[in-house]
Computed example of a mutant assay.
Amino acid sequence: MQIKNPKLTVVGAGPGDVELFTLKGIRALESADVVLYDALVNPELLEYANNAELIFVGKRKGCYAYQQEQINDLIIARAKSHGHVVRLKGGDPFIFGRGAEEMEVAAAAGLEVAMVPGISSSLAVPAYQNIPLTKRGSSESFWVITGTTRHHKLSNDVKIAAQSSATVVILMGMSKLPEITQLFCESGKKDIPVAIIQNGTTPEERVAVGTIDSIQEEVEKLKLSNPAIIVIGEVVRNRAQLLNLQVELAQTS
C-alpha cells in the first residue's frame, strides 16, 4: 500500500455543540487517516472519521494521556506511517490551544500543514447565554485572557483588563477566581456583573450570575468547576434584560 504524503491538519472542534462544527472540519475528518483528539472534543464528531485510527491524547482531571512532546512525536510518526493526521482540538486551536506550536513542529519535520479554525468557546459560550461581548452603550471592546499561564500563575493581563471598561472573558480561570475578584475589587468594580458558565453549549451547561462581590458565593452554592468560562462586564446584564422582555411578552400575549 502506498502511503500518502505526510500531512497535519489542526482542526478546531468548537465549544461543544456538534452543530457548531464547521463543514471544512467535517471534510478534514472524513479524509483523515489518524485523528488525535482532546478531552473537550465532543465524541460525536469522531463519527465523521470513519476510516481513521482514533487516539485520545487529552487531559482529564489533571492526568495527561500524553505529554506535549509525546503528542508532537506521535503527530510526526503517524503522518509518516499513515498519511493524513488530524489534530482535533476544542474551541479554536489558535486561542490558548497550542495549535500553532504543533504546526511549527510538524513543518520543521517536513510535514505539509493546514489549519481549520473552530468557533472559540470565548465567543460562543457567552452568546448561548445571550451575553454579547460588545454592545453599544455597554462595551466597545473585549479581552480574552487565560486564567493560568504556563507557570501556573494568574496572567498579569487580568490586572490591566480590570482597569478598563471592556468586557473580560477568562478561560481556565476557575482555580484563580479569588485572585480575579480581588483584582477587580481593588479597581473599584465590586458591583460589576459576572457570569460563570460551565460546560457551555452542551446539555450539561450550568450558569452562575452575580457580581464581583458575590460570584464566589454563587459558584460555591452551585458547585461549579472546570471547564468553565468567566465573563465580566456590563454586557452580562443583557441576559436578564432579554429574559425579562420575553416574560413580559408572554404575559401580554
Rank of each mutant, 00 (worst) to 15 (best):
residue 111 L to W: 04
residue 79 A to K: 03
residue 73 D to K: 03
residue 83 G to N: 05
residue 112 E to S: 14
residue 68 Q to F: 06
residue 46 L to F: 00
residue 126 P to Q: 02
residue 137 G to H: 00
residue 81 S to G: 12
residue 62 G to A: 11
residue 51 N to Q: 13
residue 74 L to C: 07
residue 119 I to W: 00
residue 127 A to G: 13
residue 43 P to I: 04
residue 46 L to E: 01
residue 50 N to E: 15
residue 130 N to M: 05
residue 91 G to A: 07
residue 48 Y to D: 03
residue 129 Q to S: 10
residue 107 A to W: 04
residue 89 K to Y: 06
residue 135 K to C: 13
residue 50 N to K: 15
residue 124 A to N: 07
residue 49 A to C: 14
residue 80 K to G: 10
residue 75 I to P: 08
residue 128 Y to S: 14
residue 116 V to S: 09
residue 93 P to R: 00
residue 114 A to Y: 04
residue 85 V to I: 14
residue 79 A to C: 13
residue 94 F to W: 01
residue 95 I to H: 01
residue 111 L to C: 08
residue 101 E to W: 10
residue 60 R to E: 13
residue 45 L to E: 00
residue 57 V to T: 11
residue 107 A to S: 15
residue 109 A to D: 05
residue 111 L to Q: 02
residue 41 V to C: 05
residue 111 L to S: 07
residue 99 G to N: 05
residue 42 N to H: 01
residue 47 E to M: 15
residue 106 A to P: 10
residue 44 E to Q: 04
residue 104 E to F: 10
residue 41 V to P: 04
residue 82 H to S: 13
residue 58 G to C: 12
residue 110 G to A: 11
residue 91 G to Q: 03
residue 47 E to S: 15
residue 80 K to Y: 11
residue 49 A to L: 11
residue 127 A to N: 08
residue 63 C to S: 14
residue 94 F to Y: 05
residue 90 G to M: 05
residue 133 L to Q: 00
residue 57 V to Y: 06
residue 72 N to A: 14
residue 46 L to C: 03
residue 100 A to L: 11
residue 83 G to E: 06
residue 103 M to K: 03
